Amino acid sequence: MAKEKVKVKATKKKEEPIILVTNDDGFTAPGIHALVEAVKGLGKIVVVAPDKPQSGMGHAITIGEPLRLHKVHNFGDVEAYSCSGTPVDCVKLAVDKVLHRKPDICISGINHGANHSINVIYSGTMSAALEASIESIPSIGFSLLDYSIEADFEGAKKYARIIVEQLLASKKLDKHICLNVNIPKVKTELIKGIKICSQAYAKYQEKFDERKDPHGRKYFWLTGEFVNFDKSKESDVWALKNNYVSVVPVQFDLTNYELKKQLEKNWKF
């Protein structure tokens, strides 16, 4: 009796996702090394980060000056580059000249210091994430509420991995998804969990101190204090104050649609 041939269906090996990692504190900052450690094993990691701190750069891009990329070996066996430009430049160059394709996800951080409430406007960390979002790359910006170079990133690493895993596993989400994630400055065991939030209405009450340098020349130094005007328990500031990790979905479309409707209805031209 002839043996019946059994057809074996070939299964295509699923390619691992490409994870682009960047920041605004520079490629030597402890925060970006913590973020790389947090997502190891979730995909192929490629780092493209500024060669120096770029905090407060917002969505700046480099125009009229050359941009330089240099391969660095600060991340062990992870492919990594330093970039002479801004965080947004890093994302643009990574897509066009390093990866030659869009990554599956872009993560930025872990920033040393808060990027909740109005800080998202000024943040180089979040501008890198938003630039990825503009290019239809799902993105997340991570920040720890600790400015110290010796900050404890264990809690931030734990929750960064959880959130990245969730995003990689998610289906049918907006292709422009961008999340602003802030982690409170407490021991890991004191973090109560993750809370999806809205951006608080809070800002800095600023002033400029007038000072003199050693040569007697006048200069100004920005000072001020952070004031929260938002008492909602749905805000990121409230969540962080109460030891939750805050997750705020953000977008680059700044259109005020309610005001648009009012103007269309009431203004006469």
Rank of each mutant, 00 (worst) to 15 (best):
M1E: 08
M1L: 08
A2D: 10
E4D: 10
K5N: 02
K7V: 04
K9N: 11
A10G: 10
K12Q: 08
K13A: 13
K13R: 15
P17Q: 06
I18R: 05
L20W: 05
V21S: 07
T22Y: 03
D25L: 14
G26N: 05
F27W: 13
A29H: 11
P30S: 15
G31R: 03
A34R: 06
V36L: 07
E37T: 06
E37V: 01
K40A: 10
L42D: 04
V46S: 09
P50S: 04
D51Y: 01
K52C: 07
Q54H: 03
Q54K: 12
S55A: 11
G56H: 08
M57Q: 08
G58D: 07
H59K: 11
H59W: 13
A60W: 00
P66V: 08
R68T: 14
L69P: 09
H70N: 12
V72N: 07
F75T: 01
G76Y: 04
G76Q: 03
E79F: 00
Y81K: 08
Y81D: 04
V91N: 02
V91K: 01
K92I: 15
L93F: 08
A94F: 10
V98E: 07
L99R: 02
R101T: 10
K102A: 07
K102W: 05
G109A: 03
G109C: 00
I110Q: 02
I110W: 07
I110Y: 04
H112R: 14
H116I: 04
H116Q: 11
V120T: 09
V120I: 08
Y122M: 00
T125F: 00
L130D: 00
A132T: 00
S133N: 11
E135W: 14
E135M: 15
S136I: 00
I137C: 01
S139D: 01
I140H: 05
G141I: 07
I149K: 09
E150H: 14
A151I: 15
D152H: 08
Y159I: 09
A160H: 11
R161V: 11
I163G: 01
I163L: 13
E165F: 02
Q166D: 12
L168S: 01
S170A: 15
S170I: 10
K172C: 08
L173Q: 10
L173A: 12
D174N: 14
I177S: 05
V181I: 12
N182P: 07
V186R: 04
T188G: 12
T188A: 13
L190F: 15
G193R: 11
G193M: 10
Q199W: 11
A200S: 15
Q205H: 13
K207G: 14
F208S: 13
K212F: 12
K212P: 03
D213E: 05
P214V: 11
P214S: 05
G216Q: 01
W221D: 11
E225R: 15
F229S: 09
F229K: 02
K231V: 15
K233L: 04
A239N: 00
A239M: 03
L240K: 03
K241I: 02
K241Q: 11
K241P: 00
N242P: 05
N242L: 01
Y244I: 03
S246T: 06
V247G: 10
V248C: 07
V250M: 12
F252Y: 10
D253P: 10
L254D: 03
L254G: 13
L254E: 02
K260Y: 14
Q262H: 14
Q262P: 05
L263F: 12
K265S: 06
K268L: 08
K268Y: 08
F269T: 04
